[in-house]
Amino acid sequence: MIEAGLKNELQKQGVYVTTLEDLYNWGRANSVWPLTFGLACCAIEMMAASMARFDLARFGAEVFRPSPRQADLMIVAGTVTKKMAPLVVRIYNQMPEPKYVIAMGACAISGGPFKQGYNVLKGVDRYLPVDVAIPGCPPRPEALIHAIMTLQEKILNQKLTGPDRARHLNADVPGEFLVPAYGKQDLEPSKNTEVWQPPAIQR
């Protein structure tokens, strides 16, 4: 492991040093392949982001894969209904590690304008470990690009070794998440408490 200060000093003298960790994460961060997966109107903005005007290809994330087996990133773009929620989790489970989730738009974050609806999941983070959340209804393509950049920053800071290493390198962390079942009134269970740990509201 090399100190940041020493690395900086060496760089000033024209000596470039790197670590395997940095190299590995640099490669991963610049080849995030999202899943072709749109649930509602946010998907239109997602498509726009991948097209020529906004050009997601600049960030290495333009290769939208039609199969979860080939994707690294799930962009939950739109309202997740309770009927769709088990399918979303199942598709996420089918993605190989390392995998990341972006909750795009108000609906994916909290249910958004449909929060009061009886059939709307109040945030996909109840079942999936969301890495980046983008507010907006829908968020503009620039916001999605910002989310990808934020995710790249997160990937670049992941560790290869040690107790806080990235999830895909840790054999003890499970690769699959709980798939909710259709209950009589609501999904059962209504949230995955291992993933969803909101702070207690102080009143």
Binding site: P68, P86, L87, Q94, P96, L169, A171, G175
Partner: peptide, 18 residues
């Protein structure tokens, strides 16, 4: 370096979520 984590969903044949 990357441990395999197979499972019921991951080994499923269909990729449509159903």
């Amino acid at each position: 370096f990357s441990p395999a984590k197979p499972g019921k969903d991951k080994n499923a044949i269909y990729e449509c979520g159903l």
